[in-house]
Every structure is written in structure tokens, then in C-alpha cells.
Design a protein around this nucleic acid. Sequence first.
DNA 1: ACCTGAACACCGTTCAAGT
DNA 2: ACCTGAACACCGTTCAAGT
Lengths: 220, 220
Amino acid sequence: MATRAQRTDALSKERIVDAAIEILDTEGEKGLTFRTLAARLATGAGAIYWHVANKDELLAAATDGVVTRVVADVARGENPRDGIRILALGVFDAIDAHPWVGTQLSREPWGAALLQIFEGLGGRLQELGVPRAQQFNSASALLNYVLGAAAQNAANARLVLPGATDRSDFLGGIAARWTELDAARYPFLRQAAAELPEHDDREQFLAGIDLILSGCLTES
Amino acid sequence: MATRAQRTDALSKERIVDAAIEILDTEGEKGLTFRTLAARLATGAGAIYWHVANKDELLAAATDGVVTRVVADVARGENPRDGIRILALGVFDAIDAHPWVGTQLSREPWGAALLQIFEGLGGRLQELGVPRAQQFNSASALLNYVLGAAAQNAANARLVLPGATDRSDFLGGIAARWTELDAARYPFLRQAAAELPEHDDREQFLAGIDLILSGCLTES
DNA sequence: ACCTGAACACCGTTCAAGT
DNA sequence: ACCTGAACACCGTTCAAGT
């Protein structure tokens, strides 16, 4: 009764999303076009609309694809504190590898990708013994921090790559600009400039996670 | 020698940026076009390029305009803790009023707007007595949290307005979706759904600020 | 120096027409 | 049911030409 398997290269939402992810990773956000996507899939631009409603849905699906893999990779057996650190760092690294994910996560507020992260953080806060009345606020604080840091890091990645200059050159350049700022108006930034070149983004990100966690466990 | 004052309606970067802010506020991000902007300024699209390099610069200037006003409004006399809360809430409210600012702040990583906020947070952390070695990490954590929450809130604002439905309906709808999630995979979200309808975004935002502050002052 | 507006090289999306 | 590809209504940006 059932027909034989479709041609292996038949169009499907999955194939479309995978191709979109590839283009986003290699060509950046501006490189993804219904025309470039159709060309890579050897089809017409209009065909894509049979499987995907519009570009927003396509981007959301691509984001969900990446995030789902990250969340699934986090081992369940960890103690909750390490679980949170591993999950957060996983999201951070995924966005470093796919900067467009950071932008996208800040755009679709209650999408599936975000819910998975939120659940992962909140569930572990429960296990950590955060009082029930503060679990929602604590999980939101963690999530917002992760998203903010991720988006910021994605923007940085976009800035570093085009110039192709070295990463330390890049930080050094920013530090130099901070040092030139008006000393009366920007005393803190001028001090921070000294620490900027030798700072490590991942380390600083994790320090922030620990800082928020200690806040979660301290609040009266 | 000097010619008399220009025609009052002569083009200038300032007039262009102000008009852009108006369009962004009333028509949203998609409403801002070099053509709509030129029409409002009663000029040709190309004329704008004499004063502004491209659309990115225009958006950055509009963002700086809004943020500068917020930062300037924060009273200097406050004790540092209140200063941080007022500054953070000022940014939060500004983004609620101008959702496009939230998107933009996550896009331009070391722009003038961000530096002003960073300085305001970091300087007050110093006054609060956060040890020097942790000031940079603490200020970054606060900034990332503010940016993440702001972008999230902006995305929410975009979702609520189009439908024109009530805000509590909106939250209720999301809570309803969370309740339908698989209980085994999303236990935390299902519990949080109960708290969602009566939660207050600004309150939750401030709770996060306090939580991070208490982390800043606790860290060993 | 500053402005005009047509032109260029694109977009996302639609839709009649095919198979 | 699924795909094609031309067409529509836009974009950002450039640039010869004007004043």
C-alpha cells in the first residue's frame, strides 16, 4: 500500500532547516536567503514555502535545532550546581560556534529553545534547595544573564571575524579606546581597561554564573 | 563673514536621528526605511547619506540618543545601591518604551550607549565596596543580566502589542501553554506556570538585580 | 557643500502553472 | 501533494547631475 521511500533528496522541513544552519554558520545571517537556500537545495525559492511558513519560522527552527542538541548533551547525573554550569557553558559555547543563535534567542521570547534552557536551569535550582518562592525569580535571573552574555558574545564574534585580526589584538584595541576616554566621566572603564586584554570570556561568564548562584542561595 | 543661520529645517544628523527615533517608536523597526525617513524629512533618500554613513550608524545613533538621556537622568546623589537599581530600572523602562533599543543594545557590543551603562554600574559597585579583583566580573554580570532581561522584555512587547490583547491575557496564554507541556520533561515549567499570570515584570527584574548584588557582596 | 532622484542589485513572499 | 520560476512590492546604497 505505502509507496516506496521518497527520493532521498526530496524536500522536507528537516533538510531545509539543516541546510539553513549550514549557510548561517558559513555565510552568516546575511548569507541566508530564500534564493541561496533554494540554490543549495537545488530547487526553486517558492518550494521552501510549502514546508516552512516564512523566514521567522525558519530561523526559529534552526535555533531550536542547535539548542536542543546542547541541552540533550548535558549529562543528567551531575550534581545540580555542576549541571547548571555545564548547561550554561554549553549554551555559551554553542553561541560562540553559531553566533546567529544568540541573536535569535533574544528575539523569540517564549520559543521552544528558551523553554528547554529555562527548565534545565530551574529544575536544578530546585534540587539545589532554593526556596520555592524564589525559584522563579532565580531561574529568570540566570536565564536573562545567560542570554545577555550570549548575545554580547555573539556580537563580539561578528566583530572579530570580519577583520580576521587576532583576538588579543581585538581586546587590546578596545582597551586602548577605553583608556582614551575622559577620566572624569569614565573612571571605572579606565581601570577595567587594564584587565581587559588578559581576561577570558568563558572564565568571566562562569564567574558570573557562580556569582548569581551564590546570590540565589543567600537571599533571605 | 559668517552666513546667517541655516534654514531652520536644514538637514542635520541630529534632525535625522530624531526623526528616526520617532518612526521607530510609532512604526516599529520595520517601519524605518530610508524612504519613509526621507519622506518625513521632506527630502530625497540619498540626502541622508550625506550625514549618516549607513543604516547601522543611524540605528546606533538613535540608541545612543535614548540611552544617554536615561543615564543622565539618574541622580548622582543616591547611595550606590539605589543608584544601581535606579539605573537598571531606567534602562529597563526605556526599553519597554522603545523596544528597538533592546535589540540594538545586544547588537553593537562596545558602543557608546553600553559603555555609559557599564560605567554607571561599575562605578557604583566600587562605592559599594566590592573588592577590586571582582569589580570587573561583577559589573559584567550586572550588565549582561540587564541586557538579557531588556532584550527579552522588548521581544515580549513586540508580541503583546500587535495582538492588542490585554497583558494578563497574554501571560495567561503562555501559562496555559506551559501547563500543557509534558509533565515528565518539564516539571519546573509547569510549576512556574502557576506563578506566571500574577507576576510583575518590573518587580521580577528588580529581584534579579538584588539577587546579583547580594552575590557580588557575598563572593569569597 | 549639500541635496535630488533615478538606477542598481538585491530582498521576502505570492501564485498561476505544471507534474 | 508537491514543486517551479516568474512577478510583485519592496529594500539599502550609489552616483551623476543639479544648486
